[in-house]
């Protein structure tokens, strides 16, 4: 290679330094504005949560007071206790947990084989099935809930916790299948192959090699299922009357309840979801079946 000659600049050293300084200033300004934007968006997200948390931990008198305070002084659990002691709330919370866990178990058991099939096999109809699953994920809950409620009444399954869990499983199943499929797709096929070369049967290879690697991802999918069921309100309010879940119970009594009940209720519903999202944040991107 010959030595390259760079065009020489006619600018003096001072001028060059000034340009460099200006460029650096502009760069810093841009970084600063990106940080400012990032923080502004974070505040936009966190502010409403903070406000309702303040309400949930203020005294009921402060909750009804005006103007409202934005720090919980004095700190009090009275509002939360008031909420939890309301008729039917603990029962509804228990129903919510039972429905969500049943949904989680059913949905995971059904979705794992399906997800594995989609991730690992090439077979005629695979794309059609994938597309079908994608489209039922976007299916309106409202459309399903009314006829299912009527059918459940006919079958004497109406107003039962397990019926709602069956419905929620239908709603979460497509999402769970897609997440599980992307989790399995992330486990290198070579490992499975190696296990089989060393004498594992396909089932053994699956249980002893694939499963341990896929387990965290499947757990994330299961948690997501839990959150979806915990939050769902339309089907819940249509399919139950005396066995309401927490969101259904809160929605149903909304117009008859005061602000302390509403704010404490909102905080109570929010809390588990926030914690769970923290645990599954790494898997958020595979969640929507677009990466893979």
């Amino acid at each position: 290679m010959t030595t390259e000659t760079y065009p020489t600049t006619s600018l003096s050293l001072a001028e060059q330094e000034q340009i460099a300084r200006r460029a650096k200033f502009q760069y810093n300004l841009r970084r600063a504005s990106i940080y400012a934007l990032a923080i502004a968006i974070a505040i936009w997200i966190l502010l409403p949560i903070w406000l309702v948390a303040v309400m949930a931990f203020s005294t009921p008198a402060d909750v009804r007071g005006f103007p409202k305070q934005i720090v919980p002084v004095p700190l009090s659990t009275d509002t939360m206790e008031f909420f939890l002691n309301q008729d039917g709330i603990l029962r509804a919370a228990r129903n919510s947990v039972v429905v969500a866990i049943t949904t989680l178990v059913l949905s995971t058991i059904i979705a794992v084989p399906a997800g594995y099939a989609i991730a690992r096999y090439v077979f005629p109809g695979r794309d059609a099935i994938r597309l079908g699953i994608l489209s039922v994920r976007a299916f309106p809950i409202v459309v399903l809930a009314v006829p299912l409620a009527v059918t459940f009444i006919e079958l004497d399954m109406y107003d039962k916790v397990y019926s709602l869990a069956l419905m929620h499983t239908a709603l979460t199943l497509p999402t769970t299948i897609l997440v599980v499929a992307s989790v399995f797709a992330g486990v290198p096929y070579e490992l499975e192959e190696a296990a089989r070369i060393f004498g594992c049967t396909p089932t053994q290879a699956f249980i002893r090699v694939v499963m341990p690697l896929a387990l965290p991802g499947i757990a994330a999918a299961a948690i997501l299922t839990f959150v979806l069921s915990w939050n769902e309100v339309f089907a819940a309010i249509l399919l139950t009357i005396s066995n309401r879940t927490l969101p259904a119970q809160i929605l149903y009594t909304l117009d008859k309840s005061g602000d302390p009940f509403k704010f404490a209720g909102a905080f109570f519903m929010l809390l588990p979801a926030m914690i769970f999202i923290f645990f599954i944040r790494r898997y958020l991107f595979s969640m929507w079946g677009i990466n893979k």
Binding site: I45, V227, W230, N231, E232, V233, P247, I250, L251, A266, M269, L270, A273, M274, F276, I277, L284
Partner: peptide
Amino acid sequence: PLGVSDLA
């Protein structure tokens, strides 16, 4: 907000 219900 992914984990927040529409009601909340």
